[in-house]
Design a protein around this nucleic acid. Sequence first.
DNA 1: CCGACTTTTCTTGAAATCCC
DNA 2: GGGATTTCAAGAAAAGTCGG
Length: 165
Amino acid sequence: MAPSTVAVELLSPKEKNRLRKPVVEKMRRDRINSSIEQLKLLLEQEFARHQPNSKLEKADILEMAVSYLKHSKAFAAAAAGPKSLHQDYSEGYSWCLQEAVQFLTLHAASDTQMKLLYHFQRPPAATAAPAKEPKAPSPAPAPAPAKAATAAAARQPVCGLWRPW
DNA sequence: CCGACTTTTCTTGAAATCCC
DNA sequence: GGGATTTCAAGAAAAGTCGG
């Protein structure tokens, strides 16, 4: 039986702390697990390529993430040269799109999901390329001119399929 | 099905860090 | 400095996997 709020009120601060500890620890574990789960989703294809049909442990997911990051860092360095604005933008767009698709796949009702996916798959010039950046600086990649974004979209598979590996 | 082994989850004490 | 909060680590228990 869960203690009532009244009963909790009667506890000393120390006892309240003792009761809260397992809850906080559980939340912490949940944070860890959900991040590992997100990593797993993000690296899905990589897993499929390297270890098809094998069960994934948390340690496997973390190892794979580390090796993927190392690999992609080396790749980025090798690719050399500063990125153009529109390259930066289209990569950011693809990234966001990938995230959205993943989220919708897991959570959205199918009708909404289909409409949104359809919307996103139209050329970014019509949907995503920002005409003007609001004053607040964003951590996301810098926006490129709409024209350039369209050209980039023509070169790249768009919906959730941009994978650097 | 059963037992051995592995992985995950939970609990808890201790250490580290934060904030007044 | 000291109390509150957060993080880490270790051990126990639960759940899952696998070979015989």
